[in-house]
Write a protein that binds this DNA or RNA. Sequence first.
DNA 1: TTGATTGTTACCGG
DNA 2: TCCGGTAACAATCA
Length: 262
Amino acid sequence: MPEGHTIHRAANDHRRLLKGRVLRITSPQGRFSDGAARLSGSRCDDVEAFGKHLVYRFDTGDVLHIHLGLFGRIRKRKLPEPDPVGAVRVRLVGDTHLVDINGPAICEVLDPAQFARLKDRIGPDVLRADADRERAFTRILKSRTGIGRLLMNQSVLSGIGNIYRTEILWRQNIHPDRAGKDLSRADLERIWTDAAALLVLGVKHNAIITVDDAPAGKGRYRERVNIFNKDRCPACAGPVTRLEIDNRRAFVCAVCQPAPRP
DNA sequence: TTGATTGTTACCGG
DNA sequence: TCCGGTAACAATCA
């Protein structure tokens, strides 16, 4: 589930439900007892997403920092309080709803200085209005690393996950092995703009939609994609090549996305 | 029971 | 400083 759109969607939803409210915070498995005790009873001042990082800000200055990693899940439940389902690390109880966080890779309390360091470490987020895209472009244009790797490096730019990586590069006819420094500024502008548009659509529909004119109704996996996990390129009908980049699946059309000269 | 999976961090060496 | 490689970790589902 966790690509950037999932986290931004959760942040928007949870802000609406929890902002301004005093929360009761528990640790059903006991694996976050200290953090829950430290935060519980304070007022939630805001909920924000930075790339795939979700943060709940409290009036004490403390921040609850969540990163779902590959397997984490967020569930919103209505009160009265139902039993936890699965490995609920932390439960945030508001006035009408609660939020359960299952299996996050990161679940920690940060003080203001630690929170500042976190924000500094995360690259500009294509979904945030305050994102400094130049910071990402400068870094990419100097890098020998392939753009496929760079797009998944959350300290370069944040919010793009594995499926969007494949889809964005296909839509822009760019091979993932092309070095960042061999791309043009115009290429990067197109990538950024496309990524932002697709993620906005993802937030809106709670699904990964990268095909134009997506038909109504939901895909089987809440996806409507062009070549991720497909056999044929929808543009040229040629075969889709499967790659592995950083041990993650990637898909390329050899015709529409010419490989760089070796 | 097994394997795959929409992710990240730490550490080391070149 | 940057880059590649490796390992560790997380929970659920088919």
